[in-house]
Amino acid sequence: MTTASAPLLDVRDLHARVVDGAGILRGISLSVRPGEIHAIMGPNGSGKSTLAGVLAGRERFAVTAGSATFDGVDLLALAPEERAARGLFLGFQYPVEIPGITNAYFLRTALNSIRKANGKPELDAMEFLELLKAKARMMEMDPKFLNRSVNEGFSGGEKKRNEILQMAILEPRLAILDETDSGLDIDALKVVAAGVNALRSPERSVILVTHYQRLLDHIVPDFIHVLAHGRIVRSGGRELALELESKGYGWIESTSGAAT
């Protein structure tokens, strides 16, 4: 553990609700330091995706109390694109199909937007293509997907692979992967996990939002937090996932009063 370093993400008593919806956070506190992998688990409707959406700046959420800082900056005051420029990445549970924009063009525009925001020179088409091809190989992705419209007609597994490809290109400091494992067969899960593991570094942090513990067999987290009713009701190490696996979420929900 790297307790000596300052947290990259520091969430304190965060309250938020979904506009026109049911999701709610009732006081989340979470510190993620550089290099750490945190898993956020919980039953459906516990607030996992709400937390991911609030951190990435999804506009359907309204923050009612609490704070979140990213590298010391007030994260909640930033537009989604500014969060991305500072190194935050959200892997979508349901990646969006965008007809008419090719994957390659989309990724180049995204990467160059982030480089520009950080005062770095933009990559030209050739430089970018080299990078893209290398990363696609790593993700065992058929190059034909690069010239197709973003996610259009992709299978569930291809979409998730595409999310990790985007992460590999954009090289975020904090990746929040929202149920990246859902809808994946075991082979696709392994490829996605390998992609995430390949990006592990002492500077890069990951928050894995997942319903199932099976992803954690492939990506080993440093910490596990269990969400229920919009609160973190248990935090612990890897053994917590195994305990959940054997006892189910009902166990957590029935004892969550004592935990909070």
Binding site: A56, G57, R58, E59, A79, P80, E81, R83, A84, A85, F89, L90, F92, P95, V96, I98, P99, G100, I101, F106, L107, T109, A110, L111, S113, I114, A117, S149, Q166, L170
Partner: peptide, 23 residues
């Protein structure tokens, strides 16, 4: 949701609007 997707990848809001309209 498509606008948010583009913005979450670092593409500025106005640019995202142009890209989607162009598409």
């Amino acid at each position: 949701e498509a606008l948010f997707y583009l913005r979450s990848r670092g593409i500025e809001a106005g640019e995202a609007r142009v890209l989607l309209t162009r598409a």
